[in-house]
């Protein structure tokens, strides 16, 4: 049996600000992980990734990040994505400060 597909979000850093951005279902780049589109189908994930990568004047380093779908939106499967979604642990800077 093939391995189950781990749901994904499309994420990158914004070209101008450099901060973490996610792709929403309406094609907007959003700053909050809970507004990101969670993709549960592998073929769709690849298409969304390709389309996002083409937006080179908006985003840098676009990739798919593993997420668990929950009622509160996508939850990172790996601690690196948790830090990206939150900000550094030594100062209240980054996403956590944006509210």
């Amino acid at each position: 049996m093939p391995k189950a597909f781990t749901p994904k979000v499309v994420t990158a850093n914004a070209l101008l600000e450099g901060d973490v951005i996610y792709l929403a279902s309406d094609d907007r780049w959003v700053r909050r992980l809970d507004e990101a589109e969670i993709i549960t189908d592998e073929a769709i994930a690849q298409l969304r990734l390709l389309d996002a990568q083409a937006r080179a004047s908006e985003a840098v380093g676009v990739y798919l990040a593993d997420m668990a779908p929950t009622e509160d939106g996508p939850q990172p499967k790996h601690f690196r994505e948790e830090f990206r979604a939150t900000g550094p642990s030594n100062y209240h800077h980054g996403k956590q400060a944006a509210g």
Binding site: N13, E17, G18, D19, V20, V60, G61, R80, F83, R84, G87, P88, H93, G94, K95
Partner: peptide
Amino acid sequence: LMNGLYLQLHAY
């Protein structure tokens, strides 16, 4: 990079 500018986890 030649001018010291990286793109890191949360920002440049």
